[in-house]
Simulated scan of single mutants.
Amino acid sequence: MSFKLKTVVAACALSVVSVGAMADTWRYAFEESLTDVQGEYAKEFKAYIEENSDHSLQLFPYGTLGESADIMEQAQAGILQFVDQSPGFTGALIPEAQVFFIPYLLPENHDELVSFFRNSKAINEDFVDVYAEKGLELLSMFPEGEVVITTKEPFETPDDLNGVKVRVMTNPLLVESYKAFGATPTPLPWGEVYGGLQTNIIQGQENPMFWVESAKMFEVTDVITFTGHNNFTTAVMANKPFFDGLSDDDQALIRDGMKAAFDHIVEYQRGLGERSLEKIKEQKPEIQVNRLTQAQRQPFRDAAQEVEAKFIEMTGERGQAILDQFKADLKAVQQ
Rank of each mutant, 00 (worst) to 15 (best):
F3T: 12
G20A: 01
D249N: 12
A304C: 09
L113K: 11
A92C: 07
D160T: 00
T25W: 00
Q58V: 10
N200I: 02
A235G: 07
Q269C: 13
V147N: 12
I280K: 02
S214Y: 15
T221H: 00
S86T: 08
T199E: 14
A11E: 12
E137K: 14
D324Q: 03
T64P: 04
E153H: 11
I265E: 02
Q74Y: 06
F100G: 05
T170W: 12
R291D: 11
S115F: 06
H55A: 13
F89M: 11
D70Y: 00
A309R: 14
F116I: 08
Y104K: 03
D302L: 04
S140W: 10
F142T: 08
D222I: 03
A47Q: 14
Q81Y: 07
V236N: 08
E156C: 10
D84W: 03
N239E: 02
T234G: 01
T170Y: 13
A122Y: 11
G39P: 00
W211P: 04
P95F: 00
E206Q: 14
Y178E: 05
T227N: 03
E112A: 13
F116N: 04
K240W: 00
Q76K: 14
Q251R: 08
N231Y: 14
F155M: 09
E67W: 07
A92D: 12
L272V: 07
L253P: 00
G78A: 01
I49C: 09
D222V: 01
A132M: 05
E219K: 15
E313K: 11
Q305Y: 14
L174V: 14
E144Y: 02
R270G: 03
G66R: 03
T25C: 01
R275N: 07
F89N: 14
F60P: 07
I71N: 08
E286D: 15
A42C: 03
G204T: 00
D222P: 08
M1V: 10
V37N: 02
G228I: 15
D324A: 04
A69W: 05
Q74R: 07
E146P: 11
P285W: 09
A21N: 04
T157W: 04
G66L: 03
K279F: 09
D263V: 09
L173Q: 06
V148W: 13
T227P: 01
V128C: 09
A328I: 04
K259I: 09
W26G: 03
E144I: 10
D160C: 00
T157Y: 02
K6G: 13
M258R: 02
R275H: 05
N124Q: 02
G39D: 02
E317S: 06
K4L: 14
L105Y: 12
G196L: 12
M314W: 11
P154Q: 10
D256V: 06
G195Q: 13
G145W: 04
C12M: 14
G39N: 03
Y268R: 04
G182M: 01
E112K: 13
